[in-house]
Design a binder for these strands. Structure first.
Lengths: 253, 253
DNA sequence: AGAGAAATTAACCCGTTGGATAAATACTGT
DNA sequence: ACAGTATTTATCCAACGGGTTAATTTCTCT
């Protein structure tokens, strides 16, 4: 938005004949796939930064280094553009979720990894959070029309179900909690803290996105969920404040 | 929006003199306080339904039964109107929060009440959720300018601190969890489920706002938090799925 | 080479929207 | 009763913003 950053690939064509003139004209080059990608990327940024109504088609075009007409040519009108971005966002997270292997981990560790993944994914993809907020503000009006997203089931629910069952039979976990509820809880613990960090930071008068604050939050969430599942004070210990020195958690994927 | 619902109080003035004409003209009546309230209420609905950019000043005026000029006269431009609504929303929840008395309850019950209050408040005030989402989408740009909201500290953090301390010394709780973290977790568990119910309902292919689903969710949240704090399987039991028959939780305030 | 198709640019259209100006009407105190 | 002020109505407008139309340029295939 700030700098119109022209991504368009220009080529300087120097007429072989008529050299004397040195008439160096800047022309454009075809690149339909690239153009489409740049449009979708710019649209993602725009929609996540300004919401659906606040997004400006002209800005998307400018940031994509394209002419406005290109949006309609390659994707469609504003709504279709928005839906394409949303579908892309779901596609991406689902794909990364599938890459998470919890099979070989013991149940508590598996749950920890699950939380860490969710947390880090949200941290790495703030636009995803914004897009979800925007779509929920619209009461999922667009998502309902998307057969594509509806068919993209998260593997997490099943993964959690398996882990919980293993945990119960191994004695690690005390109770077979509903996987859907646990999934929503884990997502919620991460999501709310990050998506509402702006207002919460103002309310509490401190920066919730500072490194220490984030580390502390992750420890708290893992501790809370594991303590609930295992009933062990071992997990609870991580919840006491001032963990400070905890090493940064590497990206899981 | 649908019906312009003219809230304006009209009075039929019948000229005492000149009776023959029966010139019954509809005139308006002054009501600055009422007008301001109607404007703010209409604005709250509009902003929560459409977000800041999506909100239409004309619709607010129409739904307030007012002339558009009135908005600027009584409150200010769109941004000031929005901030006024936001401040009102915070004011309302803070006020209700203060009404919650946890002193006389034993710690686990106090935590339960806290969660129930939060849950029910969000259920009763969906606009509050929307407004927060909208403000966070704007990265709290407006909230930062509001000295009013900054001074409205939630009593919950301190209340939680007290309850947790009591719980630890009474032996009910195993660990002195950070009150701020716990506050955010409780809010997050409730908030995310409700604010994202639209997309989640599509993803899971079921209505998360159905009565049974909501009851189940509340049980899960209370169970999760209490199990973590107490380490008791008693609390965990409530987390097993299919509680179904649980009586509806009455509004706490 | 060169014709037809694909991709891109440039310019325009027109309803919407936040906001402003000015005039009218209802109160209030004296 | 009336003058002055507070409140409300009636219009207007300039900028914006999504979308369209038409012309231009590049690529591909024969």
């Amino acid at each position: 938005m700030t700098a119109p950053a022209c991504y368009m690939r220009f080529v300087s064509t120097q007429r072989a004949t008529g050299l004397a003139k040195a008439k160096r004209t800047l022309k454009w080059q075809r690149d339909p796939e690239g153009m489409r990608l740049r449009i979708l990327e710019a649209a993602k940024q725009e929609f996540s930064a300004h919401g659906l109504a606040g997004a400006r088609v002209d800005r998307i075009a400018a940031n994509a280094g394209a002419n406005k007409r290109m949006l309609y040519y390659h994707v469609g009108n504003k709504d279709e553009l928005y839906l394409a971005v949303l579908e892309g966002a779901y596609d991406k997270i689902r794909s990364e979720e599938r890459g998470l292997d919890l099979e070989h981990l013991d149940p508590p560790e598996a749950i920890r990894r699950l939380i860490e993944f969710t947390w880090n994914y949200f941290l790495r993809n703030p636009e995803f959070l914004s897009l979800l907020q925007t779509e929920n503000l619209a009461r999922a009006k667009h998502l309902k029309r998307s057969t594509k997203v509806k068919s993209m089931h998260s593997p997490f629910v099943e993964m959690i179900g398996t882990v919980v069952r293993r945990g119960v039979s191994s004695g690690d976990f005390k109770v077979a909690v509903d996987p859907v509820q646990l999934y929503i809880s884990i997502a919620g613990l991460c999501f709310f803290y990050l998506s509402n960090s702006a207002t919460l930071s103002v309310i509490f008068g401190r920066d919730l996105l500072a490194k220490d604050a984030k580390d502390e939050r992750l420890d708290h969430m893992v501790g809370l969920v594991l303590a609930a599942l295992t009933g062990q004070s071992a997990a609870l210990l991580a919840m006491t404040k001032a963990p400070k020195s905890r090493a940064a958690v590497a990206q899981t994927v």
